[in-house]
Nucleic acid binder design. Structure first.
Length: 409
RNA sequence: CGGGCCGUAGUGUAAUGGUAGCACGAAUGCUUUGGGAGUAUUUAGUCCGAGUUCAAAUCUCGGCGGCCCGACCA
Protein backbone atom coordinates (compact mmCIF):
# COMPACT_ATOMS: atom_id res chain seq x y z
CA UNK A 1 0.00 0.00 0.00
CA UNK A 2 1.24 3.44 -0.87
CA UNK A 3 1.42 5.56 2.24
CA UNK A 4 0.69 8.65 0.17
CA UNK A 5 -2.79 7.15 -0.37
CA UNK A 6 -3.31 6.40 3.30
CA UNK A 7 -5.10 9.19 5.16
CA UNK A 8 -2.63 10.37 7.78
CA UNK A 9 -4.33 9.76 11.12
CA UNK A 10 -0.97 9.65 12.89
CA UNK A 11 -0.58 12.27 15.59
CA UNK A 12 2.46 13.92 16.96
CA UNK A 13 1.13 13.82 20.47
CA UNK A 14 -0.89 11.50 22.65
CA UNK A 15 -4.60 12.29 22.94
CA UNK A 16 -5.41 13.98 26.21
CA UNK A 17 -8.75 12.30 26.77
CA UNK A 18 -7.25 8.85 27.18
CA UNK A 19 -5.34 7.44 30.09
CA UNK A 20 -4.84 3.81 29.19
CA UNK A 21 -1.74 3.06 27.20
CA UNK A 22 -3.44 0.94 24.56
CA UNK A 23 -5.84 3.73 23.64
CA UNK A 24 -3.17 6.43 23.74
CA UNK A 25 -0.73 4.63 21.50
CA UNK A 26 -3.29 3.16 19.10
CA UNK A 27 -4.86 6.58 18.57
CA UNK A 28 -1.53 8.34 18.26
CA UNK A 29 -0.23 5.81 15.76
CA UNK A 30 -3.39 6.07 13.68
CA UNK A 31 -4.92 2.64 14.32
CA UNK A 32 -8.14 3.72 16.01
CA UNK A 33 -10.16 6.84 16.83
CA UNK A 34 -12.66 7.30 19.58
CA UNK A 35 -16.26 8.12 18.79
CA UNK A 36 -17.43 8.14 22.42
CA UNK A 37 -16.58 6.44 25.67
CA UNK A 38 -15.97 2.77 24.99
CA UNK A 39 -16.69 3.03 21.25
CA UNK A 40 -13.93 3.25 18.69
CA UNK A 41 -13.48 3.35 14.92
CA UNK A 42 -10.89 1.07 13.38
CA UNK A 43 -8.80 2.92 10.82
CA UNK A 44 -6.95 1.34 7.90
CA UNK A 45 -3.95 0.22 9.96
CA UNK A 46 -6.04 -0.88 12.92
CA UNK A 47 -8.48 -2.79 10.78
CA UNK A 48 -5.63 -4.69 9.17
CA UNK A 49 -4.45 -5.76 12.62
CA UNK A 50 -7.96 -6.82 13.60
CA UNK A 51 -8.25 -8.89 10.43
CA UNK A 52 -4.90 -10.53 11.12
CA UNK A 53 -6.05 -11.51 14.59
CA UNK A 54 -9.39 -12.68 13.22
CA UNK A 55 -7.61 -14.77 10.66
CA UNK A 56 -5.51 -16.56 13.26
CA UNK A 57 -8.60 -17.21 15.35
CA UNK A 58 -10.60 -18.46 12.38
CA UNK A 59 -7.86 -20.81 11.26
CA UNK A 60 -7.60 -22.38 14.68
CA UNK A 61 -11.37 -22.61 15.07
CA UNK A 62 -11.65 -24.27 11.68
CA UNK A 63 -8.94 -26.74 12.64
CA UNK A 64 -11.13 -28.11 15.43
CA UNK A 65 -14.10 -28.31 13.12
CA UNK A 66 -15.75 -25.03 14.05
CA UNK A 67 -18.21 -23.78 11.45
CA UNK A 68 -18.32 -20.06 10.93
CA UNK A 69 -21.68 -18.34 10.81
CA UNK A 70 -22.91 -14.79 11.32
CA UNK A 71 -25.90 -14.13 13.52
CA UNK A 72 -27.78 -10.84 13.78
CA UNK A 73 -26.72 -8.27 16.33
CA UNK A 74 -30.31 -7.04 16.49
CA UNK A 75 -32.32 -9.60 18.43
CA UNK A 76 -35.92 -9.92 19.65
CA UNK A 77 -36.97 -9.47 23.26
CA UNK A 78 -38.77 -12.85 23.42
CA UNK A 79 -35.57 -14.83 23.21
CA UNK A 80 -34.12 -13.00 26.18
CA UNK A 81 -37.29 -13.38 28.18
CA UNK A 82 -37.11 -17.15 27.76
CA UNK A 83 -33.86 -17.31 29.70
CA UNK A 84 -34.67 -14.54 32.13
CA UNK A 85 -31.94 -12.35 30.84
CA UNK A 86 -34.17 -9.57 29.53
CA UNK A 87 -34.43 -8.38 33.11
CA UNK A 88 -31.59 -10.41 34.52
CA UNK A 89 -28.67 -9.15 32.51
CA UNK A 90 -27.89 -5.58 33.39
CA UNK A 91 -25.47 -4.95 30.54
CA UNK A 92 -28.11 -5.77 27.93
CA UNK A 93 -28.56 -2.89 25.52
CA UNK A 94 -32.27 -2.51 24.87
CA UNK A 95 -33.89 -0.53 22.12
CA UNK A 96 -37.46 0.16 21.10
CA UNK A 97 -38.60 0.49 17.51
CA UNK A 98 -41.13 3.07 16.34
CA UNK A 99 -43.94 0.57 16.62
CA UNK A 100 -42.93 -0.03 20.23
CA UNK A 101 -41.41 -3.44 19.70
CA UNK A 102 -38.46 -4.13 21.95
CA UNK A 103 -35.11 -5.52 20.92
CA UNK A 104 -31.70 -6.15 22.38
CA UNK A 105 -28.32 -5.62 20.78
CA UNK A 106 -26.52 -8.89 21.35
CA UNK A 107 -23.92 -8.98 24.14
CA UNK A 108 -23.46 -12.74 23.55
CA UNK A 109 -25.57 -15.15 21.52
CA UNK A 110 -26.80 -18.15 23.47
CA UNK A 111 -30.37 -16.94 23.05
CA UNK A 112 -29.92 -16.84 19.31
CA UNK A 113 -27.69 -19.81 18.59
CA UNK A 114 -29.79 -22.29 20.57
CA UNK A 115 -33.06 -21.86 18.65
CA UNK A 116 -31.01 -21.60 15.48
CA UNK A 117 -29.29 -24.94 15.98
CA UNK A 118 -32.59 -26.58 16.82
CA UNK A 119 -33.38 -26.41 13.10
CA UNK A 120 -30.59 -28.84 12.29
CA UNK A 121 -30.35 -30.91 15.44
CA UNK A 122 -32.54 -33.96 15.85
CA UNK A 123 -30.44 -36.99 16.63
CA UNK A 124 -27.37 -37.93 18.65
CA UNK A 125 -25.83 -38.50 15.23
CA UNK A 126 -25.98 -34.79 14.56
CA UNK A 127 -23.53 -34.08 17.36
CA UNK A 128 -21.05 -32.87 18.34
CA UNK A 129 -20.71 -29.70 16.34
CA UNK A 130 -19.46 -26.20 16.91
CA UNK A 131 -20.75 -22.94 15.51
CA UNK A 132 -18.81 -19.75 15.84
CA UNK A 133 -18.93 -16.19 14.65
CA UNK A 134 -16.83 -13.07 14.77
CA UNK A 135 -19.10 -10.16 15.36
CA UNK A 136 -19.63 -6.79 16.94
CA UNK A 137 -21.09 -7.13 20.42
CA UNK A 138 -22.81 -4.58 22.59
CA UNK A 139 -22.69 -4.32 26.35
CA UNK A 140 -24.09 -1.48 28.38
CA UNK A 141 -21.13 -1.35 30.70
CA UNK A 142 -21.62 0.84 33.78
CA UNK A 143 -18.21 2.25 33.06
CA UNK A 144 -16.29 1.82 29.84
CA UNK A 145 -12.61 1.85 30.65
CA UNK A 146 -9.08 1.01 29.64
CA UNK A 147 -9.43 1.99 25.98
CA UNK A 148 -10.38 -0.97 23.84
CA UNK A 149 -10.00 -3.40 26.73
CA UNK A 150 -13.51 -2.74 27.99
CA UNK A 151 -15.77 -1.05 25.52
CA UNK A 152 -19.51 -0.82 25.06
CA UNK A 153 -19.14 -2.03 21.51
CA UNK A 154 -16.42 -4.51 20.67
CA UNK A 155 -15.57 -7.40 18.41
CA UNK A 156 -15.76 -10.88 19.79
CA UNK A 157 -15.39 -14.43 18.60
CA UNK A 158 -18.01 -16.65 20.18
CA UNK A 159 -18.06 -20.38 19.69
CA UNK A 160 -20.89 -22.64 20.87
CA UNK A 161 -20.65 -26.42 21.01
CA UNK A 162 -23.42 -29.02 21.22
CA UNK A 163 -23.15 -32.46 22.77
CA UNK A 164 -25.14 -35.53 23.65
CA UNK A 165 -23.25 -36.35 26.82
CA UNK A 166 -20.88 -34.91 29.38
CA UNK A 167 -17.93 -36.93 28.22
CA UNK A 168 -18.20 -35.50 24.77
CA UNK A 169 -18.52 -31.98 26.13
CA UNK A 170 -15.39 -32.55 28.22
CA UNK A 171 -13.52 -33.77 25.20
CA UNK A 172 -14.54 -30.78 23.15
CA UNK A 173 -13.70 -28.42 25.99
CA UNK A 174 -10.16 -29.78 26.06
CA UNK A 175 -9.93 -29.42 22.31
CA UNK A 176 -10.89 -25.76 22.55
CA UNK A 177 -8.29 -25.22 25.25
CA UNK A 178 -5.68 -26.55 22.84
CA UNK A 179 -6.97 -24.34 20.05
CA UNK A 180 -6.86 -21.30 22.34
CA UNK A 181 -3.30 -22.09 23.33
CA UNK A 182 -2.38 -22.32 19.66
CA UNK A 183 -4.00 -18.95 19.01
CA UNK A 184 -2.16 -17.21 21.84
CA UNK A 185 1.09 -18.73 20.75
CA UNK A 186 0.63 -17.40 17.23
CA UNK A 187 -0.21 -13.98 18.67
CA UNK A 188 2.98 -14.14 20.77
CA UNK A 189 0.92 -13.78 23.93
CA UNK A 190 1.67 -15.70 27.08
CA UNK A 191 -1.86 -16.44 28.25
CA UNK A 192 -2.28 -18.44 31.43
CA UNK A 193 -5.15 -20.86 31.81
CA UNK A 194 -6.88 -19.73 34.97
CA UNK A 195 -9.66 -21.21 37.06
CA UNK A 196 -12.49 -18.74 37.29
CA UNK A 197 -15.93 -18.57 38.75
CA UNK A 198 -18.67 -19.94 36.58
CA UNK A 199 -20.97 -17.09 37.44
CA UNK A 200 -24.57 -18.13 37.71
CA UNK A 201 -24.35 -20.31 34.67
CA UNK A 202 -22.00 -23.08 35.37
CA UNK A 203 -19.70 -24.52 37.95
CA UNK A 204 -16.91 -24.79 35.47
CA UNK A 205 -15.16 -21.89 33.88
CA UNK A 206 -11.68 -21.12 32.71
CA UNK A 207 -10.16 -17.88 31.61
CA UNK A 208 -7.09 -17.18 29.56
CA UNK A 209 -5.32 -14.36 31.30
CA UNK A 210 -2.49 -12.27 29.94
CA UNK A 211 -0.51 -10.79 32.79
CA UNK A 212 0.04 -7.07 32.36
CA UNK A 213 -0.30 -3.85 34.31
CA UNK A 214 -3.46 -2.79 32.53
CA UNK A 215 -5.33 -5.88 33.64
CA UNK A 216 -8.39 -5.50 35.81
CA UNK A 217 -8.37 -9.00 37.23
CA UNK A 218 -6.18 -10.19 40.07
CA UNK A 219 -4.75 -13.61 39.39
CA UNK A 220 -3.24 -15.86 41.99
CA UNK A 221 -0.38 -17.69 40.37
CA UNK A 222 2.15 -20.31 41.37
CA UNK A 223 5.39 -20.04 39.43
CA UNK A 224 6.39 -23.58 40.34
CA UNK A 225 3.43 -25.64 39.21
CA UNK A 226 1.56 -22.98 37.19
CA UNK A 227 -1.53 -23.23 39.31
CA UNK A 228 -3.58 -20.14 38.49
CA UNK A 229 -6.84 -18.91 39.87
CA UNK A 230 -8.85 -15.72 39.55
CA UNK A 231 -8.98 -14.04 42.95
CA UNK A 232 -12.76 -13.73 42.54
CA UNK A 233 -12.96 -17.39 43.62
CA UNK A 234 -10.93 -17.23 46.81
CA UNK A 235 -9.49 -14.50 48.93
CA UNK A 236 -5.93 -15.74 48.69
CA UNK A 237 -3.09 -13.34 49.34
CA UNK A 238 0.43 -12.98 48.13
CA UNK A 239 2.58 -15.43 50.05
CA UNK A 240 -0.22 -17.91 50.70
CA UNK A 241 0.66 -21.47 49.88
CA UNK A 242 -0.23 -23.07 46.58
CA UNK A 243 -2.92 -25.71 47.16
CA UNK A 244 -1.16 -28.02 44.71
CA UNK A 245 2.56 -27.80 45.41
CA UNK A 246 2.69 -25.76 48.63
CA UNK A 247 5.11 -23.13 47.38
CA UNK A 248 4.35 -19.42 47.73
CA UNK A 249 1.65 -17.84 45.58
CA UNK A 250 2.04 -14.56 43.77
CA UNK A 251 -0.57 -12.15 42.52
CA UNK A 252 -0.60 -10.60 39.06
CA UNK A 253 -2.87 -8.22 37.20
CA UNK A 254 -4.37 -9.96 34.23
CA UNK A 255 -6.44 -9.14 31.21
CA UNK A 256 -9.02 -11.74 30.38
CA UNK A 257 -8.32 -12.60 26.76
CA UNK A 258 -10.60 -15.58 26.55
CA UNK A 259 -13.24 -17.27 28.66
CA UNK A 260 -14.63 -20.75 28.27
CA UNK A 261 -17.68 -22.27 29.94
CA UNK A 262 -19.45 -25.55 30.16
CA UNK A 263 -23.00 -24.34 29.92
CA UNK A 264 -24.43 -27.85 30.24
CA UNK A 265 -28.18 -27.43 29.89
CA UNK A 266 -28.41 -23.85 31.07
CA UNK A 267 -29.56 -22.55 27.68
CA UNK A 268 -30.73 -25.72 25.96
CA UNK A 269 -33.33 -26.19 28.68
CA UNK A 270 -35.30 -22.94 28.30
CA UNK A 271 -35.46 -23.45 24.54
CA UNK A 272 -36.11 -27.19 24.84
CA UNK A 273 -33.16 -28.02 22.65
CA UNK A 274 -33.52 -31.81 22.53
CA UNK A 275 -32.36 -34.79 20.53
CA UNK A 276 -33.13 -38.51 20.24
CA UNK A 277 -30.57 -40.88 21.65
CA UNK A 278 -29.73 -44.38 20.40
CA UNK A 279 -32.85 -45.77 22.00
CA UNK A 280 -35.04 -43.11 20.46
CA UNK A 281 -35.44 -41.36 23.78
CA UNK A 282 -35.71 -37.60 23.96
CA UNK A 283 -32.84 -35.94 25.80
CA UNK A 284 -31.63 -32.45 26.45
CA UNK A 285 -28.57 -31.15 24.62
CA UNK A 286 -25.42 -30.16 26.49
CA UNK A 287 -23.55 -27.05 25.48
CA UNK A 288 -20.26 -25.28 25.85
CA UNK A 289 -19.47 -21.70 25.01
CA UNK A 290 -16.11 -20.15 24.30
CA UNK A 291 -15.47 -16.43 23.95
CA UNK A 292 -12.52 -14.45 22.81
CA UNK A 293 -12.32 -10.67 22.51
CA UNK A 294 -10.79 -9.86 19.15
CA UNK A 295 -10.61 -6.10 19.62
CA UNK A 296 -9.51 -6.57 23.20
CA UNK A 297 -6.65 -8.77 21.97
CA UNK A 298 -5.47 -5.89 19.82
CA UNK A 299 -5.40 -3.72 22.93
CA UNK A 300 -3.57 -6.37 24.93
CA UNK A 301 -0.93 -6.71 22.24
CA UNK A 302 -0.44 -2.93 22.25
CA UNK A 303 -0.05 -3.05 26.04
CA UNK A 304 2.50 -5.84 25.89
CA UNK A 305 4.51 -5.08 22.75
CA UNK A 306 5.85 -1.54 22.65
CA UNK A 307 8.76 0.63 23.64
CA UNK A 308 9.09 4.36 24.26
CA UNK A 309 8.97 5.04 20.53
CA UNK A 310 5.80 3.16 19.76
CA UNK A 311 4.29 -0.17 18.89
CA UNK A 312 6.14 -3.38 18.04
CA UNK A 313 3.67 -5.77 16.40
CA UNK A 314 4.34 -9.50 16.56
CA UNK A 315 4.66 -11.00 13.10
CA UNK A 316 1.20 -12.53 12.83
CA UNK A 317 -0.59 -9.38 13.96
CA UNK A 318 1.38 -6.73 12.11
CA UNK A 319 -0.57 -4.59 9.63
CA UNK A 320 2.24 -5.12 7.09
CA UNK A 321 5.35 -7.29 6.75
CA UNK A 322 7.63 -4.46 5.63
CA UNK A 323 7.68 -0.70 6.01
CA UNK A 324 9.60 0.58 3.00
CA UNK A 325 10.74 4.17 3.30
CA UNK A 326 12.21 6.19 0.47
CA UNK A 327 14.17 9.36 1.20
CA UNK A 328 14.46 11.85 -1.61
CA UNK A 329 13.57 10.96 -5.13
CA UNK A 330 14.83 7.45 -5.75
CA UNK A 331 13.21 5.36 -8.48
CA UNK A 332 14.76 2.15 -7.12
CA UNK A 333 12.32 2.20 -4.22
CA UNK A 334 9.28 1.69 -6.41
CA UNK A 335 10.87 -1.32 -8.03
CA UNK A 336 11.71 -2.89 -4.69
CA UNK A 337 8.14 -2.23 -3.57
CA UNK A 338 6.78 -4.02 -6.63
CA UNK A 339 9.22 -6.91 -6.30
CA UNK A 340 8.34 -7.43 -2.65
CA UNK A 341 4.64 -7.46 -3.44
CA UNK A 342 5.29 -10.01 -6.16
CA UNK A 343 6.75 -12.28 -3.48
CA UNK A 344 3.43 -12.01 -1.67
CA UNK A 345 4.75 -9.68 1.00
CA UNK A 346 2.52 -6.97 2.42
CA UNK A 347 4.35 -3.70 2.19
CA UNK A 348 3.58 -0.22 3.38
CA UNK A 349 5.56 2.02 1.07
CA UNK A 350 6.25 5.48 2.49
CA UNK A 351 6.49 7.26 -0.82
CA UNK A 352 5.47 10.63 0.62
CA UNK A 353 7.58 13.38 -0.81
CA UNK A 354 6.68 16.17 1.57
CA UNK A 355 7.63 14.42 4.81
CA UNK A 356 11.07 14.86 6.28
CA UNK A 357 13.30 11.88 6.94
CA UNK A 358 12.97 12.36 10.67
CA UNK A 359 9.23 12.38 10.55
CA UNK A 360 9.14 9.25 8.43
CA UNK A 361 11.38 7.40 10.87
CA UNK A 362 9.48 8.60 13.91
CA UNK A 363 6.17 7.55 12.38
CA UNK A 364 7.61 4.24 11.30
CA UNK A 365 8.70 3.47 14.86
CA UNK A 366 5.28 4.56 16.09
CA UNK A 367 3.40 2.24 13.71
CA UNK A 368 5.65 -0.68 14.59
CA UNK A 369 5.76 -2.80 11.43
CA UNK A 370 8.26 -5.63 12.11
CA UNK A 371 10.81 -4.65 9.45
CA UNK A 372 11.83 -1.21 8.23
CA UNK A 373 13.54 -0.87 4.86
CA UNK A 374 15.13 2.37 3.74
CA UNK A 375 16.16 3.47 0.27
CA UNK A 376 18.15 6.65 0.01
CA UNK A 377 21.24 8.12 -1.60
CA UNK A 378 23.23 6.67 1.27
CA UNK A 379 22.16 3.09 0.59
CA UNK A 380 23.50 2.94 -2.97
CA UNK A 381 22.63 -0.36 -4.58
CA UNK A 382 21.72 -1.88 -1.22
CA UNK A 383 18.68 -1.72 0.99
CA UNK A 384 18.86 -0.72 4.62
CA UNK A 385 17.24 -3.36 6.79
CA UNK A 386 16.20 -2.94 10.41
CA UNK A 387 13.90 -5.01 12.57
CA UNK A 388 11.64 -2.88 14.75
CA UNK A 389 12.46 -4.91 17.84
CA UNK A 390 16.23 -4.69 17.32
CA UNK A 391 18.70 -1.84 17.11
CA UNK A 392 20.86 -3.51 14.48
CA UNK A 393 20.86 -1.78 11.09
CA UNK A 394 22.36 -3.49 8.09
CA UNK A 395 22.67 -3.06 4.35
CA UNK A 396 21.34 -5.98 2.38
CA UNK A 397 20.36 -6.80 -1.16
CA UNK A 398 17.04 -8.04 -2.45
CA UNK A 399 17.88 -11.73 -2.24
CA UNK A 400 18.31 -11.28 1.51
CA UNK A 401 14.80 -9.86 1.77
CA UNK A 402 13.45 -12.75 -0.22
CA UNK A 403 15.09 -15.28 2.06
CA UNK A 404 14.02 -13.37 5.14
CA UNK A 405 10.43 -13.22 3.97
CA UNK A 406 10.24 -16.89 3.06
CA UNK A 407 11.82 -17.86 6.35
CA UNK A 408 9.49 -15.84 8.54
CA UNK A 409 6.18 -16.23 6.75
C1' C B 1 -24.52 3.34 40.35
C1' G B 2 -21.31 6.13 44.51
C1' G B 3 -16.65 9.29 44.76
C1' G B 4 -12.78 12.44 42.43
C1' C B 5 -10.51 15.28 38.38
C1' C B 6 -11.52 17.74 33.87
C1' G B 7 -13.83 20.33 29.23
C1' U B 8 -10.28 26.69 24.99
C1' A B 9 -9.04 25.71 16.78
C1' G B 10 -8.17 19.01 13.98
C1' U B 11 -4.11 18.01 18.06
C1' G B 12 -1.38 19.90 22.38
C1' U B 13 -1.50 24.21 25.32
C1' A B 14 -1.68 29.87 27.30
C1' A B 15 -4.80 33.58 29.13
C1' U B 16 -8.12 33.44 36.81
C1' G B 17 -13.08 38.93 35.71
C1' G B 18 -10.87 43.37 31.05
C1' U B 19 -8.08 42.79 23.11
C1' A B 20 -8.89 34.70 23.04
C1' G B 21 -2.69 33.95 22.04
C1' C B 22 1.15 30.20 20.81
C1' A B 23 2.97 25.56 18.68
C1' C B 24 1.94 21.50 15.72
C1' G B 25 -1.66 19.99 12.00
C1' A B 26 -4.35 21.27 7.53
C1' A B 27 -4.28 24.25 2.60
C1' U B 28 -1.22 26.75 -1.52
C1' G B 29 3.62 28.04 -3.67
C1' C B 30 8.96 27.65 -3.59
C1' U B 31 13.09 25.29 -1.26
C1' U B 32 14.51 20.78 1.50
C1' U B 33 15.22 15.00 2.61
C1' G B 34 19.16 10.04 7.63
C1' G B 35 15.50 11.07 13.30
C1' G B 36 8.94 14.81 14.11
C1' A B 37 12.70 20.31 7.65
C1' G B 38 12.78 25.88 6.03
C1' U B 39 9.93 29.86 4.03
C1' A B 40 5.70 33.06 2.59
C1' U B 41 0.45 33.33 2.58
C1' U B 42 -4.08 31.16 4.42
C1' U B 43 -7.32 28.29 7.71
C1' A B 44 -9.69 27.22 12.34
C1' G B 45 -11.51 27.64 18.95
C1' U B 46 -13.76 29.07 24.67
C1' C B 47 -19.13 21.95 25.11
C1' C B 48 -24.55 23.68 25.69
C1' G B 49 -28.15 26.67 28.49
C1' A B 50 -29.36 30.05 32.30
C1' G B 51 -27.55 33.48 36.04
C1' U B 52 -24.13 37.33 38.50
C1' U B 53 -21.42 41.65 36.35
C1' C B 54 -20.32 47.65 32.86
C1' A B 55 -17.57 43.24 31.30
C1' A B 56 -17.38 35.82 31.79
C1' A B 57 -12.91 31.04 28.79
C1' U B 58 -12.45 32.64 33.95
C1' C B 59 -17.53 33.21 39.14
C1' U B 60 -22.62 30.46 40.27
C1' C B 61 -26.44 26.83 38.91
C1' G B 62 -28.22 23.14 35.56
C1' G B 63 -27.28 19.98 31.50
C1' C B 64 -24.04 17.29 28.13
C1' G B 65 -19.32 15.01 27.42
C1' G B 66 -14.34 12.73 28.77
C1' C B 67 -10.86 10.31 32.19
C1' C B 68 -9.72 7.94 36.87
C1' C B 69 -10.97 5.13 41.73
C1' G B 70 -14.73 1.94 43.67
C1' A B 71 -19.01 -1.23 42.82
C1' C B 72 -20.28 -4.17 38.65
C1' C B 73 -18.13 -7.30 34.68
C1' A B 74 -22.49 -13.72 30.46
Amino acid sequence: MLQSQLPNFIRKEFPKDEESYNAKILIRAGFIEKLMAGVYSYLPLGLRVLKKIENVVKEEMNKIGGQEILMPALTPKENWEKTGRWDGLDVLFKITSRDKKEYALGPTHEEIVVPLSQKALFSYKDMPFGLYQIQTKFRDEPRAKSGILRGREFIMKDLYSFHSDEKDLDKYYQKVIKAYKAIFKRLSLDAKLVEASGGTFSKYSHEFQVFCEAGEDKIIYCKKCHFAQNSEINTSKKGDLCPKCKSSLEIFSGVEAGNIFKLNTKYSEPFSLKYRDKDGKEKIVLMGCYGMGISRLMGVIAEVFHDDKGLIWPKETAPFDFHLIVLGNNPKAKKIYNDLEKLGAQVLFDDRKEKSAGEKFAQSDLIGIPVRLVISQKTGNKIEFKERKNKLVKLVDFSYLKRYFNRTK
